[in-house]
Structures are given as structure tokens and as C-alpha cells.
């Protein structure tokens, strides 16, 4: 009877890749099934009945085999850590570059003052590119929870599903659209300034206001669409894995708990301090120079600084390990 089980397993694992991991898995399941078979026999069941029952409990072996393939896939290429590790280096570099860029973008204003339109326009472009870069690099990092969900959904192997590569591609694309959108958002007041510069008056013409309005509307639509698409994309994956709402709730709660614990209170205090400082500079500077629009950049810089602090703490955590 041992032979019959052995043969059954050989045919089960016929299509499995010839790896050490796979042969170990095969042996493990085989031995456990043999245990079950012997148990059933000792309960007084016939050989045939025992065999059928033991084999029935194995379940979907193809799923398990494909799962192992994904696992090796993931280990070799799409490990969450390697993805994040690669992204982390790029992330730090890009953030540093974008901060330097933001600061240097302010140089023209510092040199010529806000009354030279040329300086303002250059500054706005600089800030736009830099913030786009910044947002892109911040979004490079993968949320482990989402990542494991995508991996899990690939495991379920039914219907139309996304692969990790698809997921990465989609994420990158969304990220690029978002970054470019925000850059364009920041650039959008340029026609205002430009027209004011050309006509040498402080009030822009009706035409420029209309163009500006349209540009802002289009950009908002693009950002909104990608955000909705991304939301749907995650939802599809989530629904594939957790089919019952009760379990879904438990999972969500667990996720929330984990995220809550991740951001320590210490870092939050820094956030508050930085934003308070930014608000302070904004108000004082605004009253003194009356350049409220230019000074609103303060908050962008504050945001970047909080991100850098977070990055710094994460780096410290990694180094500690």
C-alpha cells in the first residue's frame, strides 16, 4: 500500500519543479499522509477507504506547488526587503537631492527679491520639480501590508489577478502621475505671474485666469482619477483574499494597530515642532514682507523636513539592528 501512495505522490508532483525545497515538501506531505493512512487503518477502515480518505485530505496540491514557485520568485527577485532596500537607497538620495533643489530654487528670490517676475517664475519651476521628485521618492517605499496582500492574492489563483510585477508597474505609474500632477499644480500660477509681468500690473487678465482655471481643473481630474484607480486596485486585491467581512475587520484592525505603533510619539513631537515653526515663520514673515504666497512654501519645506526626520529615525533603527 505504501507503493500505491508513493505512486500517487509521484503523479501529484509530476509537474513540480525539480528543487530541493520541492522534494522536501513532497516527502513531508507524503509522510504525513502515510501517518493519516495508518491511523485510519488502525481505526478498522479498509485499505481502499483509508487510501481514499487520506488522499482526499491533501487538498489542492497544485496550488501549493505554484505557491512554492512564487515563494522562490519572491525570495530571488521580489522580496519585500530587497525591494524596499533598493528603494530606500534611491529614496534617501532623491529626498536629499530634492531638498537641496527646493532650497536652491529659492536663491533667485533671495537675490532679486519678489518684485522680479523672472526670479519668481524660475523659483516656482524649481520648487515644482523638486516637490514632484520628493513625492515620487516618498511613494517609492512599499507598505508591507499591501505587499503581502498582493502576494497573497496571487496565491489564491482564481479569476483575474495581478502579479507582483503588475502591481509594481501600476504603483510606479500612479506614483509618476501623482508627482507630475503635483509639479504641474505648483507650476500652474506661472501664467498669472507672467501676464502680470508682461502688462506690468498686479492684476492678471481674464484670459490668463481662464487658462489657469482650466489647467488646475485638468490636473485635479488626473490626480483624482489615479487616486480612485489605485483605491479600486487595492480593493480588488483585498476582496480576493478576505472574503468575509468579519475576518476583514479583524485584519484591518490588526493593520491599523501595527501602523499606529510604527509611528512613535517621539517623531510626532518633531512633526508638531516643525509645523509650528513653519506656521510661525509664515505669519511673522507675512506680516513683515506681505509675500503670503511665496511664504506658503514654508509648509512644503516643513513637510519635507518631517519626512527627512522620519527617514533619519528609520535609518538609525536599521543601523541599530
Amino acid at each position: 500500500m505504501n507503493e500505491r501512495l508513493k505512486q500517487y505522490f509521484d503523479s501529484l508532483f509530476e509537474d513540480a519543479p525539480d528543487t530541493k525545497e520541492m522534494s522536501e515538501l513532497k516527502e513531508e506531505i507524503f509522510l504525513n499522509t502515510l501517518d493519516r493512512y495508518n491511523d485510519l487503518l488502525s481505526q478498522g477502515k479498509s485499505k481502499d477507504a483509508s487510501f481514499t480518505q487520506a488522499v482526499a485530505r491533501i487538498g489542492n496540491i497544485e496550488e501549493l506547488i505554484s505557491l512554492c514557485n512564487i515563494d522562490t520568485d519572491r525570495n530571488n527577485y521580489y522580496s519585500e526587503e530587497t525591494l524596499n532596500e533598493n528603494n530606500k537607497k534611491r529614496n534617501t538620495l532623491l529626498i536629499t537631492a530634492s531638498v537641496i533643489y527646493i532650497l536652491s530654487a529659492l536663491i533667485p528670490i533671495a537675490l532679486y527679491g519678489t518684485n522680479v517676475m523672472f526670479a519668481i517664475i524660475i523659483s516656482i519651476f524649481g520648487i515644482a520639480i523638486a516637490s514632484g521628485l520628493c513625492i515620487y521618492s516618498i511613494n517609492l517605499k512599499i507598505d508591507p501590508e499591501t505587499f503581502s496582500r498582493v502576494i497573497d492574492s496571487k496565491k489564491t489563483d482564481n479569476g483575474e489577478e495581478y502579479s507582483v510585477e503588475d502591481f509594481e508597474k501600476k504603483r510606479r505609474f500612479n506614483n509618476i502621475v501623482l508627482s507630475v500632477g503635483i509639479s504641474l499644480f505648483i507650476i500652474s500660477p506661472v501664467p498669472f505671474f507672467f501676464s502680470a509681468y508682461l502688462h506690468e500690473k498686479s492684476q492678471p487678465g481674464a484670459g490668463t485666469v481662464m487658462i489657469n482655471g482650466n489647467v488646475i481643473a485638468i490636473i485635479t481630474a488626473i490626480i483624482f482619477c489615479t487616486a480612485v484607480a489605485a483605491e479600486m486596485f487595492y480593493k480588488v486585491n483585498k476582496l480576493d483574499i478576505r472574503r468575509f467581512s468579519s475576518s476583514d475587520m479583524v485584519e484591518d484592525f490588526k493593520t491599523w494597530n501595527r501602523i499606529k505603533n510604527k509611528v512613535s510619539g517621539f517623531i510626532r513631537i518633531f512633526d508638531v515642532i516643525v509645523f509650528l515653526a513653519a506656521a510661525f515663520i509664515y505669519v511673522i514673515g507675512g506680516i513683515k514682507t506681505n509675500e503670503w504666497i511665496v511664504l506658503s512654501i514654508n509648509f512644503l519645506i516643513a513637510f519635507v523636513i518631517t519626512r527627512i526626520i522620519r527617514q533619519f529615525f528609520e535609518l538609525a533603527k536599521v543601523l541599530k539592528k
Binding site: E28, N32, I58, G59, I61, D71
Partner: peptide, 11 residues
């Protein structure tokens, strides 16, 4: 518990 679930969890 299905065997597949069990071995998946082990992995």
C-alpha cells in the same frame, strides 16, 4: 484545517 492551509502557514 486543510493540508494546503497548514503547509502554507508553515512556510
Amino acid at each position: 484545517l486543510k493540508e494546503a492551509t497548514l503547509y502554507t502557514a508553515f512556510k
